[in-house]
Structure formats: structure tokens, C-alpha cells
Simulated assay, not measured.
Amino acid sequence: MAMHAYGLSWIDENRLFEVTDHVFGKMFAARSKDSLPPDPFTLVAQAKILDEPLRAIVDFDDLRSRNKSLSNAIGLWHQKVLGLSGRLVELGSNGGGVDLRTAPGVLLPSWGKPGYFEVKNRFNTIKASDEKDVWDTLKLLAQSNNAVSYLIQVIPSKREPYDHPWVPSGRAADERIRCCDGVTAYAFAFDRPTALHELYEALPAVLDDVRLEHGLPLATATDGELAEDLFNSVFPDAPAE
């Protein structure tokens, strides 16, 4: 098996490649025959309303569809990468409805208790109608295991770190049911304040290795300055204290 190196001494880089290939590898394959068919009426209407060539609209619609699938996959990827930490383990289908928990013997520093974690890519990934059900699941796990439960919102709504009670509509605040941003979650998981940023910097190289694994050439080089600006426009400089 090929050895992979991305300058991340604090994570198993071969396993990082494996989980990245597992999540994204199929996206490099040809478009599935089971993909939803295009909507000709909508596409023609968009072309006329936006005064754009129909071919450009069709290509954009295909890209939009792929991007939606990619955005969904990113959340799963974060879950699996966090599961590579020595502090967290993935729970799988028998996890009681959440993605991760602290490894045996690992306690949350501020609480002295184990933790359970649901991972979402964005602060608004969960539909408002489903938030109460997720909260109830987190509360049940906290109560049943003398633990603290977290909703990890990798991309926060504001460029600020946080670790506070998660209070969706219809539920009262409970200190044991919390939410935090991605920088804070990764800092705990890998005991490294800059873990998420370092992972982000390595991502293009990891994905290039996945492309090579599937017989594809290296992708166009990532604009490093723009990529850095994107990260800094979204994520806080440091984890919550």
C-alpha cells in the first residue's frame, strides 16, 4: 500500500487518505445512470430569464447537483476524520442516533464526563422541524450515560468560537446539551488548536492522491491565497476557551 504524507504528524495520514477516498472516491466516477433527469422547462426558462446560453445553464445545473451531493458528503467526511482522533470513536449504526463519543477513559476537560457528538457540516444543516428530535436524542444520551452531548456545527453562523447550550425552538436550555464550532471541536479531538486549519491546508493534496488512485490526473492547482481568504472569512482564529 502506498504511504501518504501531508505534513500532519498528529493524525494517521494513511487513514486520512482512506476515509477521504471512501467518502469522495465515488464522485470521481462517471455520473450515475440513476441521477435525477434534468427539468427542461426550468432550464429553458432560466436561460431566457437570465439571458444566458442554454448550454451554460445546463452545465451549471449539473454542477449545482454535484455540489449538493458534495456538501452532504463533507459532513460525513468530518465525522470520519474526527473519528481518527485518539479521543473520539465513531459509533456507526448502533450509536444510539449520534455519530461519535469520547474514547474509553477520555473525559471532557471542563466536565470530567464522557461526551457524545452529532456532526453537521453547517450551523443550519438540520431542518428546524427536526431540531427537537436531535436535541431529545442528545439529552437521552447525556442522561443515560452521565455525559455531556454536543452538536458540532463545523461551519459556524458567525466567525466566532463557541461552546454553549444548544437551545432549539421548543426546548429549554440544558447545560449538558451543547453546540460548538468546528475549530473548537477539532481542537479538542486532536488536542491541537490549529487542527482544522492544518487539515484544510492539506485537503488539496489528499484529494489529488484520491484522483490518482482512480486513474485521474492531478487537478488544477488550488489558489492558495484565495483558499486562505475563504477559510479566514468563515472560521474563528482560535477555539472557544
Results as ranks from 00 to 15, higher is better:
Met3Ala: 10
Ser9Asp: 13
Trp10His: 05
Asp12Gly: 03
Asn14Tyr: 07
Asn14Gly: 14
Arg15Phe: 15
Leu16Cys: 14
Glu18Leu: 05
Val19His: 09
Asp21Trp: 04
Asp21Pro: 03
His22Ala: 13
Gly25Cys: 07
Phe28Gln: 15
Ala29Asp: 14
Arg31Cys: 13
Phe41Trp: 14
Lys48Glu: 13
Leu50Lys: 13
Asp51Phe: 06
Ala56Gln: 14
Ala56Ser: 13
Val58Met: 14
Asp61Phe: 12
Asp62Thr: 11
Leu63Lys: 09
Arg64Cys: 11
Ser65His: 12
Arg66Ser: 13
Trp77Lys: 03
His78Thr: 08
Gln79Tyr: 01
Val81Trp: 03
Leu84Arg: 00
Gly86Pro: 09
Ser93Asp: 13
Asp99Thr: 05
Thr102Asp: 02
Pro104Val: 08
Leu108Cys: 00
Trp111Glu: 15
Lys113Thr: 09
Gly115Met: 03
Arg122Trp: 06
Arg122Gly: 07
Thr125Tyr: 03
Lys127Glu: 07
Ala128Trp: 14
Asp130Ile: 00
Asp136Val: 11
Asp136Leu: 12
Leu141Glu: 01
Ala142Val: 08
Ile152Gln: 02
Pro161Gly: 07
Pro168Met: 05
Pro168Trp: 05
Ser169Val: 12
Arg176Gln: 08
Arg178Lys: 06
Asp181Trp: 01
Asp181Thr: 01
Val183Gly: 00
Ala195Met: 06
His197Asn: 08
Leu199Pro: 03
Tyr200Asn: 14
Ala202Ile: 05
Asp208Leu: 10
Asp209Trp: 08
Arg211Gly: 04
Ala219Thr: 01
Ala221Gln: 13
Ala227His: 09
Asp229Tyr: 09
Asn232His: 12
Ser233Thr: 12
Phe235Lys: 00
Asp237Arg: 11
Pro239Phe: 09
